[in-house]
Each structure stands twice: as structure tokens, then as C-alpha cells.
Write a protein that binds this DNA or RNA. Structure first.
Lengths: 239, 239
DNA sequence: TATTTTTACTTGTTAATACAAGTAGAATCG
DNA sequence: CGATTCTACTTGTATTAACAAGTAAAAATA
């Protein structure tokens, strides 16, 4: 049997369709999704396929399933949801979020005492370094230092990062998707350098995140050290 | 066909078995798990059932699947993994973690300006309030204020909470499981009260988490406000 | 009328089957 | 010997089938 649209699996397409309907408000929070059998009829697939879509939606927090009742829409991270899954830009929307480049992407050796252990390939390749400042409604909120292993990323140091997400560039130009990762979170006192960028007073508390992100390209990781002014906004997450 | 062990699904039992083997070190990080067909033979189930177990392990970060290669063990949160999925006790192990009750569970009305919106049933029911202090290797790390709606939890205020996790009590005595939740994270300056409990100096930064947890019982939520001394340990999480 | 039972849904579990697609090493060919 | 092709694995996708278990409202009963 042939596939309908350039080899994107059916369960994936249904997932994207339903997810889009949820974030666009076609289905509101608390709404009951069409039943599995109804979705089968609507989209012309069998129940295991539909169930895979719904299972993924459930795992990603978009719906809650209840045996005997149905699948209920459970989408809430709309308030000030930042840093939940992949990039910061996607979560808060491009509306109020501006990015200012402090240090343009530059190829350099890895720092001596790096926050995560590196594999041999990463060590050899050298690292692409950049610093960015994210402003929410004109107020600096994130000061972001990013490290990427320089593996198969031609011309990346010459690309424009203004007004676009790093994740978008990786996806569109290099077909690289963020698949997950790990992070360490702690509260620290702002250093003078952080104070300058985040416009905070001396001694004010700052949230510090150290993240390692895995991509669809095996062995390629993104690392970032993020300093966050949480005086006005909180970091929001689901688990 | 009969079920083998008190109605726990096969895919769930295989999940628990493999998960235990991974955290116990039977399979080490980087190891290749037995192939799906091999697991079918070993545990006497069919491939869709085995695949459901592996899919859940993958979603929970214990393995990574690679088409054409196999399932590779990817368990790392062993360093100081706290607050990753459900409870704090499970993640770090009961070894070094001691719990001290500051305020024993007591029934009281909800605070006036609560950190999360409450539904009508929760408002009516009143709230069970408790304060705990968690010590890691004798050093106070978490100061934890917990709120639970008083819905179908007989005798909970008279239970012993020393040396056991709240989650364990809910699971064993009330068959309530934590299924997920949301949280807000920010960095604050320690208040005198927090300083006293966490033994910190004035002006030191503290991590503040506000969490809402969903349970297997519809409408029953756990809320907690956690203050964390991250000077020595970081909060670790996967996404 | 109030309670209980039935019924018609819903999702959950499991099986048996088939083929597609990616991987890695063995076998073959130049 | 080196590069290519083949082959035997692996996981990914999808169908069809059947029954279990939970839910809620309709129907029957007291």
C-alpha cells in the first residue's frame, strides 16, 4: 500500500493535525476529542494507528485519556510558558520576544572545564560559540551562552540570527531537530557581567540553567548556559 | 485467556522488569537491550506488547531506540537526580535523604491567595497542610510546604510521615498515583524563615518551585511550594 | 419516584501478520 | 586490496481481530 504524503507516517500526521487544532483553539481545554473509532472513520486509518497518535499527544501533555470516557484536551502552557520542550521562542511566541546577539557565532576551542563531559568527536571538532540576550517586552530576561560541536554545519558562523530562533535555523537549513535533553538548575547570585546584561542590581538572585540537548543527528549535541531574571516571570514546565 | 498476575498488564510488567534491570545496573549505559523479537521469546508475548513497553521506557528516558540498530540504555540521572518525575525520595534513593516534619499534617482552610487556581470541590473540601524539611547527608536542602485537598483521605492527618515518602503513603494506603503535573521555577532571596530552616546566610539565593501534581484520582491534586538550597546540589531534570 | 439493571458507548490489552526502512557485517566483484 | 553488493539482522508502520474494563445514560424495576 502506498503512503499518501511524502512518506510522513499516518500517525504522525494525525498527531500534528490534532495538536494544531488544540493549540489553535479548535478544541478547547476540557473538550472531549472525537472517539478513537470516530477518528478512524474521519481520517481513514485503523485504531492502533489512531491510538499511537493519541498516545503521543497524551505523553506530550496535550490530552488526558480516561478509560470509558474519552480523550480530554489538557493544553495549558499558554500563560508564560518558557523552556518547556524545545526552544524558548516556540513556547512564548515570537510576539514579545526579541533576540539580541552579544557575540556572533564564532569557531573556537572548547572551554577547559566544560559543564558536561564531551565525547572524542566533539573535542576534535571544536566548538561554535555564541552569546545572546532575550528580551521580553523590551526587558532582558535571558542571557544565553550556547555551544555547538562544529560537526557538519557549513556556513553557520555567517548566518543571521537576528529575529530567528537557532532551532529554526538548524531545522530548516540542516534538518536537525531537538529530541530531548537534560538540565541542571540552580539559583545563584548575579555576577557583575550578568548584572550588566540583565540590568539587575547587585546581589539579586538569578536562575542558572545548564542544558545539554540531543538532536536527530547522532552524536551532535547543543549545550547552553542560561541565566534568567525570574523577578517578573517564572520558568514554566510540565512533567 | 487468563491474566497471569493480578491483572497487571503484560506490557507494564515488562516495563517494570526492564526499568529495574537498568537502574540496578544489569544493563549498563550504552548497552544494547535484547531485540524486540528476543524479548518476545524471553517473556512470551507478542511484538506489539513488547513494543509498548519499550516505547514507554523510551518516553521516560531510560532507553533510546535506533531503527536498524536496537534499543540502547540511556540512564544517567544517577548523580544527584532530584525532582525529575514523581517524588523526590524515589529519585535520590532513601540512602542519604532524611525527612524531618516541621508541621504535621493538619486540616485547615486554603490560604487566601493560593498559588494555583482551585476548583469548587477543592475549595469546599478544605486542605491538608504540612511542612517538611529534607536533609541530604545531614544538610538541609529542601524546605517543602505541601497542600492536599481533603477528598477521601481518611486518617491521613494521623499517619506517620517520618522516613517515608508522602507519595508512598498515597500509593499504598489510598491507591493514588502521581501522573504528572506542572511547575513554576524562580530564583529568590531567602527570607528569614527559609534561612532558619535551610541554615543559609542572609541574601543567599534560593530556588523556589511551585508545583501542581495530578493524580490517578480525577480532581485530586497535590500542591507544593519547595525552597531549595542549590549551593551544593543542582536540581536535575530531563525533557 | 427512587433505585437498580441494562445497554451502548468509551478506552485498554493482546494477538497474529505483513511489509518498509535503516544498519552492519559478510560476501562478492573489480 | 578496496569498493561494492548482498544478506541477515534491527526497529518502524499498518492492518485486522477479539475481548476486557470503565463510564454514563437509558430502561426496567421496586
Amino acid at each position: 500500500m502506498m503512503l499518501k504524503k511524502r512518506d510522513i507516517p499516518q500517525h504522525r500526521r494525525l498527531y500534528e493535525t490534532l495538536r494544531k487544532h488544540i493549540v489553535d483553539g479548535v478544541y478547547l481545554e476540557g473538550d472531549l476529542l472525537p472517539s478513537e473509532n470516530e477518528l478512524c472513520r474521519l481520517y481513514g486509518m485503523t485504531r492502533p494507528t489512531v491510538r499511537q497518535s493519541l498516545g503521543n499527544l497524551s505523553a506530550d501533555g496535550y490530552i488526558r485519556k480516561h478509560q470509558g470516557k474519552g480523550s480530554i484536551v489538557h493544553y495549558l502552557p499558554r500563560e508564560i510558558g518558557i523552556l518547556s520542550v524545545s526552544g524558548t521562542t516556540t513556547a512564548v511566541g515570537d510576539r514579545n520576544l526579541k533576540t539580541r546577539i552579544i557575540v556572533k557565532p564564532v569557531l573556537m576551542p572548547w572551554p577547559g572545564d566544560f559543564m558536561f563531559p564531551l565525547n572524542d568527536l566533539e573535542k576534535e571538532s571544536g566548538c561554535i560559540y555564541m552569546e545572546r540576550l532575550r528580551l521580553l517586552d523590551g526587558v532582558p530576561i535571558f542571557y544565553d551562552i550556547t555551544y555547538i560541536a562544529s560537526i557538519n554545519l557549513p556556513r553557520i558562523t555567517s548566518r543571521q540570527f537576528e529575529d530567528r530562533s537557532l532551532f529554526k535555523i538548524l531545522r530548516e537549513h540542516y534538518q536537525i531537530e531537538i529530541k530531548g535533553g537534560e538540565q541542571r538548575i540552580k539559583a545563584i547570585n548575579a555576577t557583575p557581567k550578568i548584572n550588566r546584561f540583565l540590568k539587575m542590581r547587585r546581589g539579586e538572585p538569578v536562575l542558572h540553567l545548564e542544558r545539554k540537548m540531543e538532536t536527530s543527528t547522532a552524536g551532535l549535541h547543543l549545550y547552553s548556559s542560561i541565566f534568567c531574571n525570574t523577578a517578573k516571570y517564572s520558568i514554566y514546565g510540565r512533567f
